[in-house]
């Protein structure tokens, strides 16, 4: 007779936050990204919106650590080969450095140049801001 298997990490991670708090959190993040995308770089508003995201992420990460009583018993994500990630990130960093040192931002745009072109649209800027918040949540909030 087979023993009952322990729930996978994904299920455990989902059970930490209820459905509606998660929906509210992600919707709040989207609203904040839209609000922040309305500010301009090199302005007090831009500084405040970005610093506000730092503070919110730090508070959320602290709350998760304090309230997460299952953290010790939760299994880490399954191991797998990292080679593909290492190659992909090395290519990204390599190409970014190559474009940076090429010195011609029109012929060889860096990631920042591409972002600056996209950021003239508030929607595009808010999407990038939201992705940045999601990355922060993935790193510090889970």
């Amino acid at each position: 007779m087979r023993r009952a298997e322990s729930p996978p990490a994904k299920v455990a991670a989902r059970s930490r936050w209820g459905r509606w708090p998660r929906v509210a959190l992600f919707a709040g993040g989207a609203a904040y990204a839209w609000f922040a995308a309305g500010s301009r770089p090199f302005s007090t508003g831009g500084d405040a919106a970005t610093a506000g995201a730092f503070a919110l992420m730090a508070v959320l990460a602290a709350v998760v650590r304090v309230t997460d009583t299952q953290a010790v018993s939760r299994p880490p994500p399954a191991k797998g080969r990292l080679l593909a990630w290492v190659v992909a990130v090395a290519c990204m960093v390599g190409w970014e450095l190559a474009t940076l040192f090429a010195g011609n931002s029109h012929l060889f745009p860096t990631a920042s140049d591409l972002y600056n072109a996209a950021a003239s649209s508030r929607l595009a800027k808010s999407v990038v801001f939201y992705l940045w918040l999601l990355l922060g949540w993935g790193l510090f909030g889970r």
Partner: peptide
């Protein structure tokens, strides 16, 4: 699971 998931990479970081 043969290759690392994004979750695994973020966990390692």
């Amino acid at each position: 699971g043969r290759y690392a998931t994004l979750r695994r990479v973020l966990h390692l970081l």
